[in-house]
Every structure is written in structure tokens, then in C-alpha cells.
């Protein structure tokens, strides 16, 4: 049997639109793919789905009746993992959710479990970014931080930073996904920026950053060293909490 492949634009609304079509045409075997990672199946028929907010909303409203708030969060979190094939797991989850209320609590169902596990990983990454963002003050008074999260968590951390840093301009830039959030003391905007080629994000260049920035980084490094208890040293535990791949953005972990 020929299977159908839906190609969507990578947005959550796009994905939900695809789901809408699956239900509308009562498709049994279907493969939903993000256009950026699209691989053509040899024997499949591809169809590009145009994102339609209304259709997406109808699916979402339907899910609201079936899933708890937590369940819907998990769905969205898992989506942001950008894991290969996640769309199909989510589709299976959604199908199951429309047959049973509170399906999100059925932790013994394979797709529910999988979504819960992936959502947990995404949640952990969100939490890590809330912890590991290190702002540096630029000469034009913007607190700037760059991140490179494993998953696309910028949309998830916006609220946290907005609530916390309401009286300073800040920017958090995802250098892997090439977009960022900028708070201008009024609201948060999504921005794209051009950085010079070979720009080293781990350095604090004097051309860009404020003079006092270096002092505070030094003080922070000193603090970090002073607060350690040598006789309790436990690097294994340390690395479990702060995996090495994050070190290059943490001023306290940089060689001084």
C-alpha cells in the first residue's frame, strides 16, 4: 500500500494542521515530516501542508477536552525536542487521546510514556537554560547571553526571563537555531541577527562589552572558587549537574 507523507513548515501550528488533515481524510498510515529534515520515501506520496491557524486551533481545542493541562504541556514540550520522527509519536499520542479521556496519565501506554519521557528531557533543558544563561552587559546597556540548547527551548523560557528581568534590556540568542529573544523594557520580540564570521561567543570582547563587565565576571569566578569545599570534591557529581558541553558559556568555568 502506498503511504502518505505530509510535509509541514516546522511550526507547531503547522504540525497541528497536518494532524487536522489526518483526521479529516481518516488516514491510517501517514508520515508527518518537518520540511527541514525531509527525506523522500521511495514509494510515498508527498503532500505539502499549508499552515492554517484555524485548523490548528480546532485540534488544540479538541485536545483541551481530552487532556489535562499537564498533558498538553507535554505534547508541546515533546514537539520542541525536534527529535526525528517525533511527529509520528505525537500523532499516535493524539489519536489515543481522542479515544480515552485523561490518556496522558496512562503511563503504561508506549506513546504516552515516550512523550512523557521526551517532554521531561525538554523540560530539563529548559530548566538548564534558565539556570545557565549568563548575561554580559554590553556597552549599549543590553544584557546579552547566547545559548545553544539541545532542544528548541527559547519559546519556553521567555516568560521566566520576562518576569524576572523586567527593568533591564536583555537578549538571549540561540546560536544554533539563529534566532533570539529581545526584551526592550516593554515586550519581548523575536529577532534574527548577523554576527561577524568566526565570532567567538565564549569571549567577552572589549569592543562590545562594558568595562565593568570584566570586574563582575572576575568577582563571580572568585566567588565560585571560594565557595568550594575541597575535602568534599566530587567531580563525577559536578559533571552530572553541569555537563561539560555547557561549560564554554559559563563564566565560572572558563579559565581565568
Amino acid at each position: 500500500m502506498q503511504s502518505q507523507t505530509y510535509i509541514y513548515d516546522g511550526t507547531f501550528d503547522g504540525f497541528l494542521t497536518a494532524v487536522f488533515h489526518v483526521f479529516e481524510f481518516k488516514l491510517k498510515t501517514v508520515n508527518i515530516q518537518n520540511e527541514c529534515v525531509q527525506q523522500h520515501g521511495l514509494f510515498s506520496e508527498n503532500e505539502t501542508i499549508t499552515t492554517d491557524e484555524k485548523k490548528a486551533n480546532r485540534v488544540w481545542v479538541g485536545l483541551k477536552k481530552q487532556l489535562s493541562v499537564r498533558g498538553r504541556f507535554q505534547l508541546y514540550y515533546a514537539f520542541l525536542s525536534e527529535k526525528e520522527g517525533i511527529e509520528n509519536v505525537l500523532l499516535d499520542y493524539i489519536r489515543y487521546a481522542f479515544t480515552k479521556t485523561n490518556a496522558d496519565k496512562d503511563f503504561a501506554h508506549p506513546s504516552v510514556l515516550k512523550v512523557a519521557q521526551i517532554a521531561k528531557m525538554v523540560g530539563r533543558e529548559k530548566h538548564r537554560m534558565e539556570a545557565f544563561v549568563r548575561f554580559k552587559l554590553t556597552q549599549d546597556e543590553i544584557y546579552f547571553a547566547n545559548i545553544e540548547p539541545d532542544f528548541n527551548v527559547l519559546p519556553l523560557i521567555e516568560k521566566h526571563f520576562k518576569r524576572r528581568y523586567a527593568d533591564q534590556k536583555w537578549m538571549i540568542y540561540d546560536i544554533k537555531r539563529h534566532y533570539g529573544l529581545f526584551y526592550n523594557l516593554d515586550k519581548v520580540e523575536i529577532i534574527e541577527m548577523q554576527f561577524p564570521e568566526h565570532f567567538d561567543f565564549t569571549k567577552t570582547s572589549t569592543d562590545i562589552f562594558a568595562a565593568q563587565e570584566f570586574e563582575f565576571q572576575t568577582l563571580w569566578q572568585d566567588y565560585f572558587k571560594a565557595t568550594n569545599i575541597k575535602s568534599r570534591k566530587n567531580m563525577k557529581l559536578h559533571i552530572r549537574h553541569v555537563p561539560k558541553r555547557y561549560w564554554k558559556y559559563l563564566s565560572e568555568k572558563l579559565p581565568s
Binding site: H127, E130, A131, F132, H160, R163, R164, Y165, A166, D167, Q168, F224, T227, N228, I229, K230, R232, K233, N234, M235, K236, L237, H238, R240, H241, V242, L250, E252
Partner: peptide
């Protein structure tokens, strides 16, 4: 519009080498 917020769970921003 002040600075800071302590409504959340509390965050560990880093860990010492002894894992605290």
C-alpha cells in the same frame, strides 16, 4: 517592574566541584 522574582521553584545556577 522591579528586578527579580522569587515565585518559582528556585534554581541552581551552578554547582561547586563538590557537587553542591
Amino acid at each position: 517592574k522591579g528586578i527579580g522574582d522569587a515565585t518559582g521553584m528556585g534554581i541552581c545556577h551552578s554547582y561547586t566541584e563538590d557537587g553542591r
